[in-house]
Each structure stands twice: as C-alpha cells, then as structure tokens.
Design a protein around this nucleic acid. Structure first.
Ligand SMILES: [Mn+2]
Ligand SMILES: [Mn+2]
Ligand SMILES: [Mn+2]
Ligand SMILES: [Mn+2]
Lengths: 224, 224
DNA sequence: TTATAAAGTTAGACATATCTAACAAATATT
DNA sequence: AATATTTGTTAGATATGTCTAACTTTATAA
C-alpha cells in the first residue's frame, strides 16, 4: 500500500517547518543553521534544498541564504498549526503537562487528516495560542506574536505578566514547573545584578526568586 | 535528526500488523496473501520477510508459509493495541463516527509514545473492545474474541445481539449507519431466502429489513 | 591584502523500500 | 503422468534520504 503521505514526505515536512521556525525578521536561513538545527549534515541539506526548490517551496541559489516561497511558507505554517493544536489538545483535553507535549506533537504534526485537526480545533474552542504561548497559525497560515518583551530586558520595579516561553525543552519547562512559573503569572522585578544580569523577582507566594539571565532571556512578558 | 522510530520502521510495523491480522487459527500466512493485503508486490514481501526473519520476528523458510515468532506477535499486538485504542478514543472522546476512524488510526498506531497511549487508555477507562467490536490486546499482547456467530449462520426465529463487524471499511459502516445498525442492537431473524441466503430481520423500529448474505457474513452476533 | 577559517557544494557511497522481468517450485487440471 | 497455473524467489533497477571526503566560495583575521 502506497502509505499515503500527502504532498510532501515526512522528511520534507520537517525541513519546511525548520525553515519557518528559524526564519527571523528577514525570513532567511543559512544552510549551516538549518543543518545544525535538524542535526543533518550540510550536503544533505543542500540536496534537499534543491529538491524543495524544484517543487517551488524554497528559493535556492548557490551560496545564498535560503528562503521559503509563499507556497512553502503556507505548507510550513500548516504543519506548525497541527503541531501547536496538538500540544494544546494534549494539555487541555488529555491532561499532559506543558513539558511533555512537544515530542508527541513532533510526530502527530505529520498526520494526514484535515478532519482530525478540525475536530481538535473545535473541541478546544479555536485557540489562538499553544501551551507555551506561541501563536497557532490560522488555516491561511497567518499568525501574529503578541508584542512581548524578554523578561531580561525589563527593569526593577516593573510588574509584568508571563506570556510565553521561548524554549520548549522539557528540561527548561520542568525547571519552570519547579518554581511554579507558568503563563499568566504576574511577576514583579525586585532587582537586577549588574554583574551577571541575574534577576530577583517576586510572584505569588514566592517572595524572592532568583533567576539567571539565561532563564530570563527565555521568558516573554507583557507589560500591560 | 534521526527521526526516532522505535525498534521497527514504519514499513516493518505495517508488515507485522498485517501478519497478525491475517493469521487465522493456524497462525500462518502466505506470501501471496500478505502481498495482496498490503498491496505490495511479492518479491518485496519476500525480501522484507527475510529481513524480519533476521530480526527474529518472523519464521521464514523458502516456499513455506509465514508465521510470526513470539516476539513478532508481541510487537504486532502492541501496534494493534495502539490502533484500536486510538479508534476508541476518536469515537468516544472526539466525536467521530465509527466509519471515520480507521484511516486516522492507521497513522496514529505508529506514534512512539507509551505515555500517549497510556493516557488514552486511562481516559477511556481501560476499554476491552474497539468501536467495531474487536478486542483490544492488553499490554502483554493478549486478547480474546468473544464467542460470536456470523449472523449468516443463524436461523429464523433466533434473537441475537450485534456484537462486532468483520469489515471496517467506511463504505460498509456507512451502509450500516443508513440502516441504523450498530453494536448492541437486538435483532430478530424473520426469514432466510434459501436461494441467495438473503435474510429478513427485525430490530428497533425497522419491522422488516432485508440484508444480503454478503452483509450478514460480516456481522458477528451473540446468541445470549 | 593575503592567509585562514567557516560555510557551502560536488561526487560518490550506502541503507531502505519499492518495482519489473525472468526463473523455479509447488499445486491444480487434464 | 504430463501440462498448465499459481505461488514464490532471484536478480537487477529505481527513488528517497542519509553520509563522508574532497573541493570551492565566502567571510574573517592577520
Ligand atoms: Mn512544540
Ligand atoms: Mn516532526
Ligand atoms: Mn481499524
Ligand atoms: Mn499503519
């Protein structure tokens, strides 16, 4: 049986998604970057980029940075939509913790069944954000980040609300769990150590929690 | 990234499952049968059987029928367990019809995450049967069919309960839907046409429904 | 501005999973 | 028993996705 895999192979889908996720403001990504992110050697990436270019999903020219085409971006967004809907479903409907869902979503995002994800979407009430605060692309592939600031860019005296996390690794999220840090939390900045930028913050029944710069850089907050 | 696929590849998993599903009383399956079922040419099947034999999952000898080893059977049962739990979850927790779930389960059965399926199992209350009446193998790969009879083997005057369906194709299940036939239904056999074995049955507010032999063969019933 | 390092490409190998064509063995039919 | 049919195997080709080694281009540092 020709195991039905939609228009793109599983491998192709993972490249498209990575390109989308790595694209910053400019929308471009280097071969090297992509290679490191996917843990796939550069020559392999180059050859896949030629293939995706032939399918008009990536703009590829030798020695120039990569960029998704409009169609490539649409396909990528659709996969990311499935990933994030899945994460939300796992947390909201199946009782998983936010630190447990990424690896499962990494697999389920490749399921070919529009109906399956429409059902998820409906059961969840058409959510706009995933459990880590990342926006869920709509069916047209459009999404917009809230205007967050890194906690590390905030100043003592400010009171902010935790809106998203920038690193979805299980280890990081478990660390946040251990400090009762979760989305929606109101946090007051008590002080910043100028030497190493360590912050001391207050929230809920944590009168003075110390957070490293590494951690604060990965916490996105809303300044009301 | 070495896309993590447990111990067996997706292709291997589909062969194991097919071997399990096709194995009758004797537990053996012919290359030809497997080839037709999977829609994969015989030479391909032969070479995969050699591979699975090398992994000690299949007993293979030239020109002899195939049989899963004990370990092969365990692996296969684990996949079928995931398939049937998924079908149950889709129907019970996501509102799908029993005619919609097979194709999605065909994909989700390959997800590698024991926790994901344990959660499903728990949320469903550890079900013993899938939405089509097939038994769900337990974690040790053990399962037992209820002692059903084919409706086609029953006689006029008998009153039986529909316990399972033998064909999970969307078309067949939609046909059953159109006649309000579903598991648990109590059915009285009114008459059997000796020429073509067509049955006339009565159930619920269907005073006299005519069912072809082809249909009756695929309905498994309990004689109380 | 040249030398060095980093990034990227080309060429060729390899594993997996599939196919077709040709041949062989087992089974069924006459 | 001889022949024909079905079933199964072997050999060799192809597509996909990965790798290493060697080379080229671009960027960085002397
Ligand atoms: Mn994720
Ligand atoms: Mn993925
Ligand atoms: Mn099924
Ligand atoms: Mn499958």
């Amino acid at each position: 049986m020709t195991t039905f895999r939609g228009v793109n192979s599983l491998a192709e889908e993972n490249y498209l998604k990575a390109l989308f996720n790595l694209a910053g403001e400019s929308g471009v990504v280097n071969v090297n970057e992509l290679s490191r992110h996917l843990n796939i050697k550069m020559p392999t990436v180059t050859s896949m980029m030629k293939k995706l270019s032939a399918k008009n999903l990536v703009h590829y020219e030798s020695y120039k940075p990569l960029k998704l085409t409009e169609e490539g971006e649409k396909r990528a967004a659709a996969i990311i939509r499935k990933h994030r809907l899945t994460e939300m479903f796992l947390v909201e409907k199946m009782g998983f913790g936010w630190e447990q869902v990424h690896d499962i979503a990494e697999q389920i995002e490749h399921i070919q069944s529009p109906l399956f994800f429409e059902k998820m979407d409906a059961l969840l009430g058409y959510p706009k954000f995933d459990p880590h605060g990342s926006p869920i692309p709509d069916k047209d592939g459009k999404m917009k980040w809230k205007e967050f600031h890194k906690l590390s860019d905030c100043l003592p005296g400010e009171e902010v609300i935790l809106g998203a996390v920038i690193n979805n690794s299980s280890e990081f999220l478990q660390f946040l769990n251990s400090r009762d840090l979760r989305l929606g939390l109101s946090i007051s900045i008590l002080s910043v150590e100028s030497f190493d930028k360590t912050m001391v913050v207050h929230y809920e029944n944590h009168p003075a929690e110390t957070l490293s710069h590494t951690v604060c850089e990965r916490l996105l907050v809303d300044k009301q």
